[in-house]
Amino acid sequence: MSLAWRVQVLALSLIFSTAHARASENTQNTNTDLVRQAFANWQQGKGSAFDLLAPDAKWTVAGTSPVSAVYASKAELAQAVRPITARLATPIVPTVRSIVAQGDVVAVLWNGTATALDHKPYDNTYLWHMTFKNGQIVEVTAFLDTYALDDLMRRVKPAQ
């Protein structure tokens, strides 16, 4: 292979890798912006991060506690969340602590605060590891104090 040919191959490789890196960075920034805006809306009572879920999104609550599980769709997750919100007098209000992104993955560390029906606070810290595809979340692994959530579920009777 001639030197000129090698230089051309190297130049093309650099162009393609730079273009790929730029496209990946743009996707990463877009996904981060979507998450940041969804949490801001949620904090203002105008939606939530759940609005970003694809209909067939897989949601895993990590751990081995009674509330740990895998949900195979947005609808299935909504059914699982309903008994939680039925025990709260106020919606959970998020406060984002940090957002980290790499490629199609965005991780957000956040605190959630609400008041339960028994007038006691429900406070938890969450880390959501979210994978995006075409602007929607397709997979989440949620880390949280599952025992704080289990305590809420056991302690408070749901609203009728």
Results as ranks from 00 to 15, higher is better:
3 L>M: 11
5 W>M: 14
6 R>L: 13
10 L>W: 07
10 L>N: 07
12 L>E: 08
12 L>F: 09
13 S>P: 08
13 S>C: 14
13 S>N: 14
14 L>W: 06
15 I>H: 12
18 T>I: 15
19 A>P: 07
19 A>H: 10
21 A>S: 11
22 R>T: 09
23 A>V: 12
23 A>M: 14
27 T>R: 15
27 T>P: 08
29 N>C: 02
30 T>L: 09
30 T>G: 08
31 N>A: 02
32 T>N: 06
33 D>W: 04
33 D>I: 11
34 L>S: 01
34 L>Y: 00
34 L>C: 01
36 R>G: 06
36 R>E: 09
37 Q>S: 10
37 Q>N: 02
37 Q>W: 00
37 Q>G: 01
41 N>P: 10
42 W>K: 06
42 W>A: 00
42 W>N: 06
44 Q>K: 11
46 K>Y: 07
47 G>S: 00
47 G>Q: 03
50 F>M: 13
50 F>C: 11
52 L>T: 00
53 L>R: 02
54 A>W: 07
54 A>E: 03
56 D>R: 02
57 A>I: 05
58 K>P: 06
59 W>L: 06
61 V>E: 04
62 A>C: 01
63 G>V: 05
64 T>D: 12
65 S>V: 07
65 S>L: 10
67 V>L: 13
69 A>V: 05
69 A>I: 03
69 A>P: 00
71 Y>N: 00
72 A>Q: 15
77 L>P: 03
78 A>F: 12
78 A>C: 09
80 A>F: 00
81 V>I: 13
83 P>A: 03
83 P>Q: 01
85 T>E: 06
85 T>M: 09
86 A>F: 11
87 R>P: 05
88 L>H: 05
88 L>P: 04
90 T>R: 07
90 T>C: 01
91 P>N: 05
92 I>W: 04
93 V>E: 08
95 T>G: 01
95 T>R: 13
96 V>W: 00
96 V>F: 03
97 R>E: 14
98 S>D: 12
100 V>C: 04
100 V>M: 03
102 Q>R: 15
103 G>K: 02
104 D>A: 05
105 V>Y: 00
106 V>E: 02
106 V>W: 08
107 A>K: 12
112 G>I: 01
112 G>N: 03
113 T>D: 14
114 A>S: 01
114 A>I: 04
115 T>A: 14
116 A>D: 06
116 A>V: 12
117 L>K: 03
119 H>M: 13
119 H>V: 12
121 P>Y: 07
123 D>E: 12
123 D>P: 09
123 D>V: 11
124 N>V: 13
127 L>D: 09
128 W>N: 15
128 W>M: 15
129 H>T: 11
130 M>C: 05
130 M>G: 08
131 T>Y: 00
133 K>S: 11
133 K>W: 01
134 N>L: 04
